[in-house]
Design a protein around this nucleic acid. Structure first.
Lengths: 226, 226
DNA sequence: TTAACGCTTAACAATTTAATAATCCACCCT
DNA sequence: AGGGTGGATTATTAAATTGTTAAGCGTTAA
């Protein structure tokens, strides 16, 4: 394997959690450093140069948000992924975190398995700049940067969810996407919406495009094809 | 093939909670067993073989962590999802739970709605993308990803059951599949349908393909061959 | 603040698929 | 040839899934 291991810095004041989580991340091929308070987090970030920083909100010395604020103010950390560990429903931290440039949040309590799968997801997301590539299938052109679709060069504007759904389906023409896959991808695994929601968005897309490019596979899902 | 309902075992010493939660889970299509203490949880786990076990921490006989420890020590429960019900901010239980292999935690008090959405999320996260490989037998190509069949490159769309049946038979050309095997595989062992049902689907496949590729072996079953 | 928009849901219609029942046919047997 | 057996076919009914419309609600824009 020639790809260098991703480096993760994780800061939390609870030693047991640090140990369990870092153990699991290491087992999955990541390089991990730990910090037990805010000051240490900043110091280790500088010497370790991580790809991802996981910060607990509540920490001695400096809390996670302060750490984030300090790091983000420096150019070399503009691109670094920073995610927070927050208590469930801690609205205040979410708001503050976003304000200072958090990339995501992980709710406590957190299991190692979920942590690993989230971390995998972050890096997957990062390493896929293809999501912002424009696509062209037949008369249809999808421009992620504009959130716009062109049919025979006529612009058609879709709402956010509509656009994402179309883009997702069109990412692999011909292949059937299961309803569950769609929910996972477009709505996320922790949001619960009914099945009709997908239908309605599909309908809106069909309607706006006026083009029969989404096929229903009953009992399975939907697929895009020209 | 219809997916068998996921089985959930929930253990809590509070009868009201058991009832409300299990009611809601059942309403969402899960199969639920309940236990009111640690010993019963272990016993029911053995006879019920659940996909997910929800354990309250505080229970008579054996507490949730002990139950988890005992189950995890046996190979057949290595893969089972185990989550704990914990009081908010119960760090000690979290750490202990993680140590003994908990997959996640749900904080009390819990609303049925959140419980259901969490449970959905668990299973979604678990469900791995099924391995699908396309097959090609003579002029016939079966594309599981598209839920499509091509005959001399002409696309033919089959209904869900038809497709699954054809795919199953074609998975081993020449071999005879007994009616019982087919029922088990395509319909599942818990669904009861008559023998004629298979005939009818076979007929539909023959009809749509217009190709004599399914041979009847009287008194035995069917086989696929070109 | 109002207006517009996007997302979700509910209710019901429409469609597709699955299952059953009834009938027909081919084959085997004595 | 006649009866029995298992399978094929067709028509019919039932069930499941999706499509459609409209309404509610929260958010954003004007």
């Amino acid at each position: 394997m020639s790809i260098p291991a991703k480096k993760i810095l994780i800061a939390d004041d609870e030693p047991d959690i640090l140990e369990i989580v870092s153990y699991n991340l290491i087992m999955h091929g990541y390089e991990v450093e730990t910090a037990k308070d805010g000051d240490q987090a900043i110091q280790k970030a500088r010497q370790f140069n991580p790809d991802l920083i996981i910060l607990d909100i509540m920490m001695p010395k400096k809390n996670g948000i302060e750490v984030c604020k300090i790091l983000r103010s420096q150019p070399e950390y503009q691109q670094t992924l920073i995610v927070f560990l927050t208590a469930l429903n801690d609205e205040f931290s979410h708001v503050k975190g976003l304000e200072y440039g958090a990339d995501d949040f992980i709710s406590k309590p957190i299991s190692p398995k979920i942590m690993v799968s989230k971390v995998n997801a972050f890096f997957r997301r990062l390493s896929k700049p293809e999501e912002v590539k424009s696509m062209e299938i037949g008369d249809l052109r999808i421009e992620p940067e504009e959130y716009m679709v062109y049919l025979k060069n006529e612009p058609i504007s879709l709402a956010k969810k509509e656009f994402e759904l179309l883009q997702y389906l069109a990412s692999r023409p011909g292949r059937v996407f299961l309803r569950g896959e769609i929910l996972n991808q477009i709505w996320g695994s922790d949001v619960i919406v009914g099945d009709r929601t997908i239908d309605v968005h599909i309908r809106k897309i069909r309607q706006k495009l006026g083009l029969d490019c989404i096929t229903t596979v009953k009992g399975v899902g939907y697929k895009f094809e020209i």
